[in-house]
Amino acid sequence: MAKLEIYWSFRSPYSYLAIDRLCAIREHYEVDVAFRPVRPLAMREPDFFERGRKQFVPYLMQDFPREAERLGLAFGLPNPDPIDMDMGTGKVAPEQPLMDRVMALGIAACENDRGLDFAKAVSARVWTGKPWSDDASLGDAAREAGLDLAALEGWASANAAKIAKTIEANEAEQLKHHWGVPLMVLDGEAFFGQDRLDSLEWRLAKRGLRRD
């Protein structure tokens, strides 16, 4: 069976814009989906926003709502931001408890073959401005994905080393193809960005992988 690897970030608005269509691809095509969460760029390259071009964030904040509206998706700023950083200077805090927690839960969800479902439920809160980081919100997201928050937390607590190794491996594999998210890799062929999902579906259909 064809293998589709998905590299995805909880802080990326473009990952949010892609998640519904990625779930649809999993449903409608004969493909083995491997969901591989990675940390946000602010953690992978902590100085990125300090040294980056000043146009990056203003353009993103113009483009993301526009794309969400075009796709008919709700949108809003994270409440709270999954990453602790000074948006004025771009300086990222050394400790990132919110992202550390949601990444651990995401890896735990992957162990239950529900990583994509959990990501969809969480991102639907993060990128529509809803509360997402408290136990009640994460518990609701877990239930939407067919999971139990306490069970995810228990597995994560007992498998900290495995989680760290999985994240490290995911990010190393991602960099073989691209540094950004969402990144989809179909049997070694990379498609970067939510605006390449049409290309991905074209390739899947061309290979005769559509179920219906």
Rank of each mutant, 00 (worst) to 15 (best):
G52F: 09
E95A: 15
V33A: 04
G52N: 12
P82R: 08
W127N: 02
A109G: 07
L209T: 03
K176F: 03
L116A: 06
Y59H: 14
T166R: 15
F75D: 04
F10W: 13
A34C: 10
D195L: 02
L183N: 06
G115Q: 10
R125T: 00
L98N: 05
K91E: 13
L77R: 14
G154Y: 10
D81I: 03
H177N: 01
S12A: 13
Y16R: 11
D187S: 07
L204Q: 13
S123Y: 05
A18D: 09
L149Y: 07
S123W: 08
A108D: 09
P37M: 12
R203A: 14
I167G: 03
E201L: 04
G193Y: 11
F56C: 00
L77P: 03
A190L: 09
K120L: 01
W179I: 09
I6C: 01
R51K: 15
S15W: 03
A42F: 14
V92S: 09
P78I: 05
V185C: 11
A42E: 15
D195G: 03
I19D: 07
R211C: 00
M1E: 12
P58Y: 07
G180F: 06
P82G: 08
A124K: 12
D20E: 15
P58Q: 07
E111C: 02
A18F: 07
A145R: 05
P182T: 09
R70Y: 11
V126Q: 07
Q194S: 13
E30C: 04
P37D: 11
R11E: 14
E50D: 00
R11A: 15
R207E: 10
L71N: 05
A145D: 04
P37C: 08
L149I: 02
Y16F: 15
A169D: 13
L183A: 10
E144V: 00
P80Q: 10
D100I: 00
V31W: 10
R39W: 09
A68N: 08
A158M: 08
F10P: 12
A158K: 13
L22V: 11
E27H: 00
D212C: 02
I163M: 06
K120I: 00
A108L: 10
L186S: 10
R203I: 03
E50N: 03
F49Y: 15
M43D: 07
K3W: 00
D113L: 10
K3A: 08
